[in-house]
Simulated scan of single mutants.
Amino acid sequence: MTIERTIRQPQAVVFDGVPLAPLVRAVLDECRRLGSRQEVSALLAEAVQRGVSLPELFAELDAGSSRGTAIPREALHRIADGARSAAEVDAMRVWRMSGLPEPRWNHELRDENGEYIATADGYFAAVALAWEIDSYDFHFGKQHYAATVARNARYAAAGIVVLQTLPSRLRTEPKRVAAELVAAYRAATARSGAA
């Protein structure tokens, strides 16, 4: 347990008779102490996925001490731009290195009949290129692997090129991944005839 002085005492939330700080405050207090962009991004993405709103997080960040807020503020802006996970925050950073136009983040794709194709992590509509950040955790095992293969088949049937990237490579090989993204974009451009 860490005890810290504050001039902004939060209104306690009582859980099983124990007074606790509200979730939004607890999350940001922890983020201010973490030094790792990856850990901060993961914690904030998890909080948003579980229902903490971005306006609440931004308001709490603005109201509190500015000490230790640069990394959480950067991560929140990435999440506000469409990232749903720490890996997607990393993907946005790599995309910025590529010099390519911004993709549509977490964009749901449907065919001409309205049938669901997939929700691409990043989608470059002008050249029909989907960028998927596919981790072992979510794509390993028979069912998950089968779902990934089925997704890729739907992409192919719709004429969409797919680039799959492991999340770990976004951190360990960002320049190489950015180069692969540029190469895939160029290939998709040549294939589609887009300028």
Rank of each mutant, 00 (worst) to 15 (best):
I3K: 14
I3L: 15
I3W: 09
R5E: 09
R5H: 09
T6I: 07
I7E: 10
P10H: 07
Q11L: 07
V14N: 10
V14C: 07
F15Q: 14
A26I: 04
L28P: 05
D29A: 08
R32F: 09
R33S: 12
R33E: 14
L34F: 09
L34H: 13
L34E: 14
G35A: 08
S36E: 13
R37Q: 13
V40S: 00
A42E: 14
L44I: 10
A45W: 01
A45G: 03
A45H: 00
A45R: 00
Q49E: 10
E60G: 08
E60P: 13
D62Y: 02
R67S: 14
R67M: 06
G68Q: 05
R73T: 07
E74K: 11
A75C: 15
L76W: 05
H77N: 13
R78S: 15
D81V: 04
A83K: 05
R84F: 08
R84C: 06
S85Y: 01
V89D: 08
A91F: 14
A91M: 13
P101D: 07
E102G: 06
P103I: 14
N106Q: 15
N106S: 11
R110P: 12
E112R: 13
E115P: 09
Y116W: 06
A118H: 05
A120Q: 08
D121W: 07
D121F: 05
Y123V: 12
F124N: 11
A125I: 07
A125V: 11
D134C: 01
D134Y: 00
D134F: 01
H139M: 02
H139W: 09
F140C: 11
G141I: 00
G141T: 00
H144P: 07
Y145F: 08
A146V: 01
T148P: 00
A150Q: 08
A150E: 12
A150L: 04
R151F: 00
A153T: 06
Y155E: 06
A157V: 00
A158K: 04
G159Q: 00
I160W: 02
V161H: 09
V161C: 07
V162Y: 00
T165I: 05
L166P: 14
S168M: 12
R169I: 01
R169P: 00
R169H: 09
L170K: 02
R171K: 11
T172Q: 11
E173S: 12
E173T: 14
P174N: 09
L181A: 15
L181Y: 01
A183L: 04
Y185V: 05
R186A: 14
R186E: 15
A188P: 02
A188Q: 05
T189V: 06
T189F: 00
A190G: 08
A190W: 03
R191P: 04
G193R: 08
